[in-house]
Amino acid sequence: MDLFAQLFVNGLVNGSHYALLGVGFGLIFATTRILHFAYGPIFTAAAYAAWFAANVLGLPIAAAMLFAAAIAAVLGVITYQYLYLPFERGQGSSHVTLIASLGLFIVLENLIAIIFGTGGRVIDGYQYSIFLIGPIYFSSVQLGQVIAMVVLTALLGVYLARTRHGKAILATTDNPEMARIIGIDTVKVSRLVFAIGSALSAIPATLILLKDGASPSMGFFAVFIAFVAVIVGGVGSLRGAVAGGLALGMVESLGLWKIPTEWQSSIAFIVLFLVVLLRPQGLFGRAVN
């Protein structure tokens, strides 16, 4: 039972991490319909930016996180403005944009490896604290992962529902044609979601840096799991991305309670397979054709 409780907490923690990744990726995907594969290396770049800020510039962790968010936002907007937007204007199909995104993925990942080297990076001297509640262990970084997910998702939810920009994003997500008709500049909205979505990815990136360190190839798993979380939860739904991420984390953790751990990489996919078969619209999505 102790093991189950610990696995449950692990699932919650990792699920929160996946959920936050999913929220950022999902916001971009739902609004722009771009499968932003390069979300992965931007996530990596954010982790390295945080490392740079904390280790080289000597900023405190919170400031490093903000610095990383700013860098990620800038990279995201540049990517949209100079890669995706020309493709959209050039009438390229979404497939073509996907492959262009893949091209950028390759470029960024290798660029990061050249600039920062291939070894791992950690913030020197950083030590997180460990808590023990009953039989359950967790660290301050893990706590941070859960809190970050809850707070940021809530903030984003409020922002989308209450502010003028947020409503414009929702309108564009709902129906870009209609949004244009009622006078929303959808390009501006897209730029905005790329900024927000990318900045969001910087938070889990920094937390992973604190937890495990950064490596140039950490982005692939991040974008992969974000994509899956969004699909499991349902495209276009904030709640869905959160639920999808948490579900993945839980399944991955609790699923291995009795199953040998060599199946770790596929267990979430077996569940995913079933979810999509039984509920093709995702857990929280609307049925779309």
Binding site: S217, M218, A222, E252, S253, S265
Partner: peptide, 8 residues
């Protein structure tokens, strides 16, 4: 290089 080994 697994991203997560908490379960293990």
């Amino acid at each position: 290089g697994a991203a997560n080994i908490d379960t293990q």
